[in-house]
Design a protein around this nucleic acid. Structure first.
Lengths: 246, 246
DNA sequence: TCTTGGTAGTGTATATTTGACACTAAGATT
DNA sequence: AATCTTAGTGTCAAATATACACTACCAAGA
């Protein structure tokens, strides 16, 4: 029986790290390790308890860094999840027992999502993970805890956010083609977008710089490269604009 | 010096309760009571630590109920606030010392906002409050802790939300006039909206039911009453629509 | 070297939506 | 009767959204 003060909840962050492979949105999931060396077959979102002198964003950045080695990534809070029984599924409790001193204590988690360019690095299993893998979001099965719900919420928030800010650029290389951007928007919004209308709309925003460079070695007409123009975007934000909606 | 496990953060909810008085948006603030009977002069958002077997929404509903006596109100999470020093202002620490066994423990709070019809009730000072008052949002001064930041975030989220869902109806009586609705949108968005364009747009959504009833005793042309039509709204959501934006 | 397969890139016509704008109607008060 | 106040209404022009089909360019293989 825990002491009274042990009934205070713990607080963690969980991070929905999204990447784009030029076709699908992928989410970075970890495989849990058991204390006896075996690997659990349930995948989970990466996350960790927050440290004592860390704010929520710092905790999320730490998780992200341990997994990807990257810093300064796009990161946005998506909400808190705190149902008392969110850790109560039998498999989850079994796993918690093997890794924690306090398997029964309540944990409230703050969910973040971040957007990364999948080609920038290869994920490393971190201290809290046995394995790491990119999983296309349409192939994500049952996750640990309430992580399916968290993932769904984050994807919804991403769709809302991308209608207001061009955050999608974080999922692409610095140089990208309009075709890539088009496929990215279709993947995020999960619906087809007319090619000509998409190109017209994105170009009218005037936040892209056309580079004097084309694809090479592709078995079709080579596409021009563009890059996102932060300065023009900032000006656009200041003068006020309403929508990036598609 | 606290024990090690006491370093675990506590978790609270804070609630931005918004009301509309036919002119301004108002927020419900509490005055803190000191243990010696005096009243602190700093206003705060109502909130409380979450109970052991309560989820986050339940905790927010409880705070709301204790203050207003109302249930089943519109309530939406706006995010978590967890800076380690969010309780560290001198006045706040002084107050914490008079009311808590643990003045120095870290508290992470989950912010909610709710929308209520101001005429439905009169707020009651609850267990955690010395006084309760409606304050027009433009008159809100320095609040306790990081509550100004929380309020700002919640108002921003309200503006985003009302562009997607007609949540504003929760701030009005069941029967209302288009003029009231118009003033409400202007108050929330903090900008003037053309009367004719507003009416056209809101009516085209076809989610209002025109009642066979008019204002009485008003010293001007009486206005028709309308009510929000939940059924039509649900149909609209199902068939898909994009924007309530103004 | 010619054919094939695959993606890049472009314009127009129509329908819909937005934004600006000014007067009459109805009731209460004096 | 005059005055005050809010309710309620229509039109035009500009901007935006939608639907839609063909040519250009490159690589690879026949």
């Amino acid at each position: 029986m825990p002491h009274l003060h042990d009934l205070n909840p713990r607080v963690s962050v969980d991070n929905v790290i999204l990447g784009f492979d030029d076709e699908n949105l992928n989410v970075l999931l970890i495989g849990r390790s058991l204390s006896d060396g075996r690997t659990d077959d349930v995948l989970a979102l990466p996350g960790d308890l927050i440290f004592e002198n860390e704010n929520l964003e710092m905790a999320a950045e730490r998780v992200l860094f341990e997994l990807t080695g990257l810093t300064d990534l796009f990161l946005q809070q998506a909400g808190a999840f705190g149902d008392p029984n969110r850790l109560a599924k039998p498999k989850d409790r079994e796993w918690l027992k093997t890794v924690r001193q306090e398997p029964d204590v309540r944990v409230i988690t703050i969910a973040f999502f971040s957007l990364v360019n999948m080609n920038d690095y290869t994920p490393q299993p971190a201290s809290f993970a046995r394995s790491v893998q990119w999983v296309p979001i349409q192939d994500v099965g049952d996750l640990a805890f309430d992580h399916n719900r968290i993932l769904t919420t984050c994807l919804k928030r991403l769709r809302e956010t991308i209608a207001i800010k061009p955050v999608g650029f974080n999922l692409l290389p610095v140089k990208f083609t309009l075709g890539q951007l088009h496929r990215l928007y279709e993947a995020i919004l999960d619906k087809p977008l007319d090619k000509r209308n998409f190109r017209r709309k994105i170009q009218k925003l005037d936040i892209l710089t056309h580079l004097d460079e084309k694809q090479e070695g592709v078995p079709h007409k080579p596409s021009s490269f563009y890059k996102f123009n932060e300065i023009k975007y900032q000006k656009l934000v200041e003068t006020g604009f309403d929508n990036f909606g598609f």
